[in-house]
Nucleic acid binder design. Structure first.
Lengths: 233, 233
DNA sequence: TGCTCCCTCGCTATTTCTGGGGAGGGGAAA
DNA sequence: TTTCCCCTCCCCAGAAATAGCGAGGGAGCA
C-alpha cells in the first residue's frame, strides 16, 4: 500500500492521475479503479479504468441522475458496498445490466468524498467475484481506499484551482454576525434585536459587508460570504 | 496506530468517543485531541480533551465566528497546519492569545471533514512544541489522523442521527435555476428575464423552494440550498 | 496628531419582496 | 385513469429592503 499511495501523492497533472488509477488497479488486482468528480451542476470529470465506450454512454445517457452509486453515496458519509444500495427501481436495473455488459464488475465499493463549496466526488473500485471474496477484500483494504480517495481528491482540487474561493477583504465581527443571522433566515428587525442594536446600525453592517464582498444585494452578500467560508452556517 | 483506530471503530456511544479521544492523546503524546462538529444552525457538538473552562468560554463568546481554524478549514479540503492559517485580523489575534492561555498548544493540525447535507466537522490535534518538531510529527502521522478523523465522524453520525441535517426534498430544475441566480445576486426581475419566464412564475418557484427547504425568506432559502449542496455558486 | 476603520444612532422616499387569492396544461408514476 | 408534481401565467395590498443624506465616539497606527 505505502508505495502506491506515495506514487499518487507525487502525481503531477491530470494525466498522472489517470496512470495512477491503472497502477492502483494492478496493485490490488481488481477490475476497475475510478475517480469521479460530480459537479452539482451536472458537469463531471473523472479518470479511471472504465472503457471509453462505457464512459461515453454514461455521459450521453446522463446516467448521473439514475446511477444508484451516485445517489446512494450522496446521502452517506461512510464508504459503501454496492450491494447495500437500492437497485430496485426500473431505471436502476437497466442501468445495472448495461454497466455489467460494459465490463463493470458485479461487485463494487465506493468512497464518497466532499470538498469545500459543495464539491462531491466518488472513488470506486469494482470487480467480478462472489460476495464473500469481495467482502473479505473490501474489509482488508477499507482504510487504504479511504486514504487513496482522499489523496485523489486532494490532487484533483490542486489541479483545478478555479475552485479555490477568491480572497476578499475580511469581514468585521459585527458584519460576520449580521451575515450569519441573515443566513439563518432572520429579518433585519430580528437580527437587530438579536444583536441588541438599532436596525439602522445593522443596515450599516449589511451595506459595508455587501461592499466588501462586491455583492449586489443581501442575498448575494450572504451567498458570497458562505462560499468564501467567511461565515459558517 | 492500528489498535488505537480499532478501539475507535468499536466505540459505542458518545462517552466512548470522549474516552477514545483521551486514549489517542496519550498514544501520540500530544496535548489535545478534539473532534468538533459544527452544526448548520450554529449549534455545536464536540468531544475531546480541551478544558471545560475553555470550551465554555468558546461557546459563550461564540468564537466559532472568529476562530481561524474553523474558517480556514471550511475553505480547504486537505488537513492544515495552524501556522498556515490567517491569524492576522485583530479578533483572530485576541482569540489566539486566549486559546494559548487556556492550555491549547501553540501548534495545531486540523482535518476538515464533510458529510451529507452540508455537515461539517473538524478533527484537531494540538500541542506545545517548536515548529520543526511539530512538522516532523504531523508529517509522520498525517495519514493516521485522516483515518481517525474519518472514523470519528462516522461514529458521530451513527450516534447522533438527530443532529444530521435533515435531508430536504430535492429541488426541481427550475427551482435550482432560481436559487442559483438569486445566489448570484440577481433580483427577481433579472432572474425572471434570464430564465425567460414571468416574474410571477419565478415567484412560485422561489416560494416552493422556500417551502421545501423550510426557509423563512429568500436569503434563508439560498443559504440552505448552498449549505446542503443543492446549488453551487 | 492626523488617518483609518469599527461601532453606534437618525430621517425620508422608493423599490423590491412577500403573502393571499386563482387557473390551466403536461408528464410520470401508481 | 387518476393522482401528483412540475411548469406557466395573472391581480392586489401590505411588509420589508434599499438608496440617499447625515452624526459622533473609540481603537489602533504612522
Amino acid at each position: 500500500m505505502e508505495p502506491i499511495l506515495e506514487d499518487l501523492e507525487q502525481a503531477e497533472g491530470l494525466a498522472a492521475l489517470q496512470s495512477a488509477s491503472e497502477e492502483i488497479r494492478d496493485h490490488y488486482g481488481v477490475d476497475h479503479v475510478v475517480y469521479h468528480w460530480v459537479d452539482s451542476a451536472g458537469d463531471q470529470y473523472g479518470c479511471g479504468t472504465y472503457s471509453d465506450t462505457w464512459r461515453d454512454r454514461y455521459l450521453e445517457q446522463n446516467y448521473l441522475r439514475v446511477d444508484p452509486v451516485i445517489l446512494g453515496c450522496f446521502q452517506r458519509f461512510h464508504p459503501v458496498d454496492w450491494k447495500r444500495l437500492d437497485w430496485s427501481s426500473k431505471p436502476a436495473r437497466t442501468f445495472q445490466a448495461e454497466a455489467i455488459a460494459h465490463g463493470v464488475g458485479n461487485q463494487g465499493f465506493s468512497v464518497p468524498i466532499r470538498g469545500p463549496n459543495g464539491q462531491f466526488a466518488l472513488f470506486t473500485t469494482s470487480h467480478s467475484c462472489d460476495d464473500d471474496t469481495w467482502a473479505t477484500w473490501t474489509e482488508a483494504h477499507r482504510r487504504d481506499l479511504i486514504l487513496i480517495a482522499h489523496t485523489f481528491n486532494e490532487k484533483a482540487l490542486e489541479f483545478e484551482p478555479d475552485r479555490a474561493p477568491e480572497q476578499s477583504q475580511a469581514l468585521s465581527p459585527r458584519e460576520v454576525d449580521a451575515m450569519t443571522f441573515l443566513a439563518m433566515g432572520y429579518s433585519r428587525a430580528q437580527v437587530a434585536d438579536t444583536l441588541s442594536i438599532s436596525e439602522h446600525t445593522l443596515r450599516v453592517y449589511i451595506e459595508s459587508a455587501r461592499f466588501k464582498l462586491g455583492a449586489m444585494n443581501t442575498t448575494h452578500a450572504v451567498a458570497r460570504a458562505m462560499s468564501r467560508g467567511l461565515i459558517v452556517v
